[in-house]
Design a protein around this nucleic acid. Sequence first.
DNA 1: AATAAAATATACCGATTGGTATTATTTCAA
DNA 2: TTGAAATAATACCAATCGGTATATTTTATT
Lengths: 212, 212
Amino acid sequence: MQKYTNWYIFAMLFATNMSKAERTKQFIVEKTAPIFNVKGYAGTSVNDMMAATGLTKGSIYGNFRNKDDVALAAFDHNRKKVDQVVRREMEKEKSAKGKLMVYAKVYGNFYKDAFPEGGCPILNTAIEADDTHAVLREKAADAITGWKNNIAGIIQKGVANNEFSADVDPEQIAISIVALIEGGIMVAKVTGKLNYRTAIMKSVEKMINDLS
Amino acid sequence: MQKYTNWYIFAMLFATNMSKAERTKQFIVEKTAPIFNVKGYAGTSVNDMMAATGLTKGSIYGNFRNKDDVALAAFDHNRKKVDQVVRREMEKEKSAKGKLMVYAKVYGNFYKDAFPEGGCPILNTAIEADDTHAVLREKAADAITGWKNNIAGIIQKGVANNEFSADVDPEQIAISIVALIEGGIMVAKVTGKLNYRTAIMKSVEKMINDLS
DNA sequence: AATAAAATATACCGATTGGTATTATTTCAA
DNA sequence: TTGAAATAATACCAATCGGTATATTTTATT
């Protein structure tokens, strides 16, 4: 009579539930992520989220506990979007210098679609959250440190195979490249001047070239 | 009978009015400026402004048309605060290199009181306002460009008296120094790591040293 | 097709938002 | 000291805030 064990039924229900829930959750995140990146956390209202998704409060709050949860997921989503482009472009490069130059290219806006609306989510989140939202601030800080470690690792490999000179300080250069790029994004975005961006990216390239 | 002409009475009343009004306006700006710099424009409420000043709405709205006006004045105030420290320190320096190094020193946090609570107001305002508040965005953009011009002018003088080599591009270096410093402030603030800040400021110094 | 559950919509909540009109108080010249 | 103007405090406004409880519709399983 009983075709399925209780365990199986439970598992299927659970799995179905999860996959559907995850689908709508993903939908909400995708639609709200650019808004959080443009208006910021404090500037984005639940009404904005409803307008962006076409869903009602009940639907949104059925999938997320509160605005915070959506904002956190939206940041992760925005970050992943940039990361994917960087990783994809970096795989094409063999040399350490080539890999480092990917950052200058991606953040120098040669790949416009790399960034979500509103610019670099790490930068935006760092500035808004550093004094007001501990969890978001730590997420932004982790992103910075991870990025720095990534660059430092590439530099170290370049030193190891004599592509770069031995007396460079990988950590110092790595965090400086991060700062220069992020500062460049801010400057270029707020002034809207393309030549500012290209000038700063030239400095990034010089910083990389000075390694060898 | 009439000791004073109508014009004189009007002038005195006007002057008195202005000076008193300016005093309370100044008070409101001074007290709210750090809050705008920490919480941002969208994150700062009229209640916050009342709490910071100890004044009521009637008093605040009697001196400012709306929240916008206070925010604009607060930005100018915060900017001036940083500018004053920079200018004061720069007067002590004679050489072009010495003058440029002032930025590394001031923004490298050797003068902690130079910045209002919340960090660099130009950076904070640029990030929040670039997509949401045209007037504030332009103020931030003007600050960036003015700062860049200031640095470029110093470099040009350094080139003119052979302190720097003739083949440097003052504009390119100037905007890059701005970007590196602002990016450095963001990185240092969000991570809280002092060694990040010192590493980045070392790169600023290198950028300046490379001029000669 | 029936049913249970999951997803979404509706309607509402108290609190807070930015802002205003009015009243009370302070300031200051005459 | 007084009277008028300047300033600040009070009380109130509609709108919106983030969030919740309940009702309705969709979805999936047997």
